[in-house]
Simulated assay, not measured.
Amino acid sequence: MMTTLTAPMTASGRDADLLGTIRSEWIKFRGLTSNVVLAGFALLLLIANGVAMPWAYVFRDRGSPQADYDAYAEMIVDKTGYVGVILAVLAALLVTNEYRSGQIRTTLLSTPTRIPALVSKATIIAAVSFIIGVISSSIGFAIAPAILAGGGYSYQLEGAEALRLIGGSGLYLATLSIIGIAAGSLIRNVVGSVLTTVVFLIIVPVIPQMFSEYGTEITRFFPIQAGSLLLAPQGTDPMGPWGGYLVLAAWAVLLFTAAAIALKRRDA
Rank of each mutant, 00 (worst) to 15 (best):
A52E: 06
T4Q: 14
A39G: 13
V77D: 09
E217N: 04
T21W: 01
S34I: 15
F211A: 07
V51K: 11
I224Q: 12
V128H: 09
L93P: 00
S110I: 01
D237N: 14
P208R: 04
A258G: 13
L186H: 09
I132V: 15
I125N: 04
A260M: 13
G13L: 15
Y214T: 14
A268M: 08
L32E: 12
I131S: 11
L45F: 15
P112F: 04
S129Y: 10
T106I: 06
A252V: 03
S129I: 02
V89N: 09
A232G: 10
V85P: 07
L43I: 09
S138T: 15
T197D: 06
T111M: 01
A48C: 09
A91H: 03
F211H: 01
P205S: 05
P205E: 09
V77M: 11
R265H: 14
I179P: 02
A144Q: 07
R105D: 06
A71R: 05
P233T: 05
S101I: 01
K121P: 03
V36T: 14
I124C: 05
A183D: 07
L254G: 14
D17A: 10
A48P: 03
L176M: 07
L254Q: 04
R266G: 12
A42P: 02
A146H: 13
T96Y: 11
G31L: 10
V89D: 10
A16H: 01
V95N: 02
D61L: 10
G20E: 08
V194I: 14
A183Y: 07
L173G: 06
T236N: 12
Y69E: 11
A268G: 11
L254C: 14
S110P: 01
G151Q: 05
P223S: 10
F200Y: 12
V190C: 05
G240D: 11
T107R: 00
V198R: 08
I202P: 00
G227K: 11
A67S: 15
L109F: 08
E217C: 00
L109E: 01
S136V: 05
L38P: 07
I124W: 03
T107E: 01
A71E: 06
G31S: 12
K28G: 09
A7R: 03
V119G: 04
I203R: 06
S129F: 08
V95R: 01
G184D: 06
A11Q: 13
M1P: 10
G167R: 11
W242T: 09
K79C: 06
Q66F: 15
I187K: 07
G20P: 04
L45Q: 02
F222V: 03
S154Q: 08
L165N: 05
G150N: 09
G244T: 01
K79H: 13
A144W: 00
V134D: 09
W242Y: 15
A226V: 02
Q209F: 00
V190T: 15
W251M: 00
L46I: 06
A258M: 14
Q209W: 01
T197Q: 05
S193E: 09
L45R: 02
M9G: 04
L87T: 02
A226P: 05
G40S: 09
V198F: 12
N49G: 12
P116S: 08
